[in-house]
C-alpha cells in the first residue's frame, strides 16, 4: 500500500530536503475560513497538512490549541464537517497528504468502521490519535492499517530503546517525534538533542521521522529540518490565526493571510536546510 504520504516523502528524498508539516484545527475560527486556509497551505509551502479534529478535552494540548478547538466547536464543527472539509480540499488537490490528528472519543462515538470508510472516501491519508498508545492497537490502529490509512505514532523522550520497537511495530507513513515532554506550544526543542533522538529512532526504523512541539520560527524550523525528515508547526500557526481575529473571535480579512504568510516563511526555513544524510 502506497499512500500520498509515502509518495510525498519519496519526492522529498529526491529533492534532498525535509518536509514542512503544518497543523491547524478544523473549523477554526469557522468552517469557511478554515477551508480557505487549508486550501492555501500547499501554495504557501506546506508539504503535509495535519488537521486537528476538535475535542472538548484535549489532554495533551496547551492553551493555544485548546482555545482553537473551543473556537471550532463554538462555530459548530463536528467530525462529519471535518471530513467534509477534507473532501472539499481534495476537489482541488489530489497530491498533498492530509493527516487527521486528535483524540479517540469522537471517532469511537462515530463508530470506528464508519469513520475509516468515511475518512478514506474523503481523501484522508493518515491518522494521529494522541490517546491511543500501542497497548490499545486493536481499537483503531489495526483497523486503520487494514483500511489503507497510515497510522502515525508519536514517539517521545520517554520512549526508550526498549519500548521503541513496540511503538514502531504498527506505525506507518512517518514517525512523529515529540521533541519535549510536555503539552503543545510550550518549551522549544534543542536541535542537538533532537538530532540525537532522531538518530536513535532511525536505528529502529526506515520510516521518515518528523519532529514537532516547540517550533515557532523559520530558524528553528531550519535547524529541525537539518536534523529530521520533517518539521511540524502547530501552535505558532494557531497563534497567528488567533491574533488576526476580531474582539469577538471572528475571522477578519487578515486571517487567511496571517496564517499563510507565517507558513510561507517557515517553509522557507525548512527549504533552507540541507537534508541530513539518510
Amino acid at each position: 500500500m502506497t499512500t500520498r504520504i509515502d509518495t510525498r516523502f519519496a519526492e522529498l528524498r529526491k529533492q534532498g530536503r525535509a518536509a514542512f508539516v503544518t497543523f491547524l484545527m478544523a473549523g477554526d475560527p469557522d468552517p469557511a475560513t478554515s477551508l480557505a486556509i487549508i486550501k492555501a497551505l500547499p501554495q504557501a509551502g506546506a508539504d503535509i497538512i495535519e488537521i486537528g479534529m476538535p475535542f472538548t478535552d484535549p489532554m495533551a494540548d496547551g492553551p493555544a490549541i485548546q482555545a482553537a478547538g473551543l473556537r471550532a466547536l463554538k462555530a459548530g464543527m463536528t467530525l462529519n464537517k471535518t471530513l467534509d472539509m477534507v473532501r472539499k480540499f481534495r476537489e482541488g488537490d489530489n497530491v498533498t497528504p492530509i493527516v487527521l490528528m486528535g483524540y479517540y472519543n469522537p471517532i469511537f462515538i462515530h463508530g470506528v468502521d464508519a469513520f475509516l470508510t468515511d475518512a478514506k472516501a474523503a481523501g484522508v491519508d493518515g491518522l494521529i490519535i494522541v490517546d491511543l498508545p500501542p497497548e490499545e492497537d486493536d481499537e483503531l490502529c489495526i483497523p486503520a492499517l487494514r483500511a489503507g490509512l497510515n497510522f502515525i505514532r508519536l514517539a517521545t523522550p520517554t520512549t526508550d530503546d526498549k519500548r521503541l520497537p513496540a511503538v514502531l511495530a504498527n506505525t506507518s507513513g512517518f514517525v512523529y517525534y515529540v521533541s519535549i515532554t510536555g503539552i503543545t506550544g510550550s518549551a522549544s526543542a534543542n536541535a542537538t538533542q533532537v538530532g540525537e533522538a532522531v538518530a536513535r529512532i532511525k536505528r529502529h526504523t526506515a520510516l521518515p521521522v518528523c519532529v514537532g512541539f516547540g517550533i515557532r520560527t523559520p530558524e528553528a524550523a531550519r535547524d529541525i529540518a537539518r536534523a529530521a525528515n520533517g518539521a511540524v508547526v502547530g501552535s505558532a500557526l494557531v497563534d497567528a490565526l488567533r491574533a488576526s481575529l476580531d474582539a469577538e473571535g471572528r475571522a477578519t480579512a487578515l486571517t487567511v493571510g496571517a496564517v499563510t504568510d507565517l507558513a510561507a516563511s517557515l517553509a522557507q526555513g525548512v527549504r533552507g536546510a540541507a537534508q541530513a544524510a539518510e
Partner: peptide, 9 residues
C-alpha cells in the same frame, strides 16, 4: 490505557 505516549512508560 488511553493515554499519550509520553505517559505510557
Amino acid at each position: 490505557r488511553f493515554v499519550a505516549e509520553t505517559l505510557m512508560p
